[in-house]
Amino acid sequence: MAPPPLAVLHTEGAPVLDLLTVPQVMARLQLGRSAVYDLLRSGQLASITLGRARRIPTHALTDFIRTRLEQDAS
């Protein structure tokens, strides 16, 4: 079976959905592993599970940071 056409995978103008690993999020937030998993567990940071792997969409990380900045500004 042939793979789907590229237009199905990525349309012009649509953002590419980048997924980050927990260690990548740890590095970006400068937090430990437990702190990141606490954020995931509490629902403050959205993620998806692929098999046993946890992945965090970059937009979820951006939304989390934006929300925290807004909370701190209030």
Rank of each mutant, 00 (worst) to 15 (best):
G32T: 08
P4K: 11
L39N: 02
T62L: 13
L39D: 01
L17E: 15
L29K: 02
D63G: 09
T21I: 00
L40W: 04
F64D: 03
M26R: 15
I48N: 07
P23Y: 07
Q30S: 15
A60T: 07
D18F: 10
H10C: 10
L31M: 13
H10M: 12
I56Q: 00
T21P: 00
L31W: 03
I48Y: 12
H10P: 00
T49F: 08
S42F: 02
L9E: 06
I56C: 03
R41L: 06
F64P: 01
L50A: 10
R52A: 12
L29I: 06
Q71D: 08
L39H: 11
R52P: 04
G43W: 06
T58F: 05
Q24W: 05
Q44A: 14
L19I: 00
I65V: 15
L40T: 06
L29A: 03
L19D: 03
R28E: 15
T49W: 10
G13H: 02
I48F: 09
M26L: 08
I56F: 04
P57V: 07
T49Y: 09
L50H: 11
I65R: 09
L17H: 07
E12T: 09
L50N: 07
S47H: 13
T21F: 01
Q71V: 02
H59W: 04
G51W: 01
P4V: 12
P5R: 13
F64H: 14
F64Y: 15
P15F: 00
L31F: 09
T21D: 03
Q30N: 15
T67L: 12
H59D: 11
D18A: 12
A7D: 14
V25N: 00
L17Y: 01
R52N: 11
L69S: 06
P15E: 07
A7H: 13
A46E: 14
A53F: 06
R66T: 13
A73I: 07
G32D: 08
L20R: 01
S42E: 14
T49R: 15
M26D: 01
D63A: 15
A14P: 00
R28S: 10
F64C: 05
D38P: 02
E12W: 08
S42M: 10
I65W: 02
R54N: 04
S34D: 15
P3L: 13
R68P: 01
R66Y: 05
L29G: 01
A14N: 06
T62I: 13
L61G: 01
L9M: 10
L69V: 05
G51N: 03
G51P: 03
V8A: 13
L31P: 01
A2D: 14
Q24M: 10
A53D: 10
D38R: 15
V25S: 02
T67M: 05
